[in-house]
Design a protein around this nucleic acid. Sequence first.
DNA 1: CGAGTACCCTGTTGGC
DNA 2: TGCCAACAGGGTACTC
Length: 288
Amino acid sequence: MPELPEVEVVRRGLHRWVAGRTVAHVQVAHPRAVRRHLAGPADFEAALTGVTLGAAHRRGKYLWLPVIEPAQSGRALLAHLGMSGQLLVLPPDTPPGPHLRIRFGFTGGGCELRFVDQRTFGGLSLEPCSTGLPDLITHIAADPLDPEFDAGRFASALRRRRTGLKRALLDQSLISGVGNIYADEALWRSRLHYARPTETMRRFEVDRLLEEIRTVMGSALDAGGTSFDSLYVDINGSSGFFSRSLHVYGRAGRACDRCSTPIRREPFMNRSSFRCPRCQPRPRRPRW
DNA sequence: CGAGTACCCTGTTGGC
DNA sequence: TGCCAACAGGGTACTC
């Protein structure tokens, strides 16, 4: 379940191990991994062979590396990890494993890049990239760690919505990079209920919420970032953070770290929401 | 058009 | 012990 911090850790790994390298060969082992590449797996393989990839970028949970050679090709290799995707930098003789979807070899030999994905919600594609952003993801909002992120604009866009607060947090066109786990954690830290009507959010509450989102993401980044300065570009480095720092997510029935009231799990948007019923009381007029 | 829901997928878990 | 339902959930296509 990679959210922004995990994806950022992967971005750093890609930047270190893949940026600047030239693709010698590509092999798509599972067509679903390139389903967003509309021209199909064969075209994906052919179009990427021989290109040189540039610096690794990220917006929210999307990653991309622009094609820098041939120059002005206006394309980028775009990746989304979905729920279980991993980008691994491994020696070529590493056994494939059952969930290997795509492998890239580079000129000059050395390690391969592998896209491994159990549940195949993730995928890669080669996308037109006319601006600084792949065309496909221009609707994705800036994330709270992006210097371009505008808190004032976010606050007013949030208030224009007619929905519940958590729904809005998970809407990547409003704010990106926040998934179910960090949404619950940030709401708990801000003492806000997931069904709080967005239009009633005061500016100071929005600012406090953003601060807590950044805090949660920042500590996850610290936890994952340290163990990832190596050959292995992976999403599981944050497991230490998950086990130690989560206050509500996955803690149904356990005592709230602030007030000892048992944490409650509630169905929400076909998934789960965790909250403290005392610290995060239901609003008078809840909005789904 | 904006809001909300169904669906994609597979390994793990828990109830009976 | 074995089987099946529930669960995990981001993003998008779809409906209302």
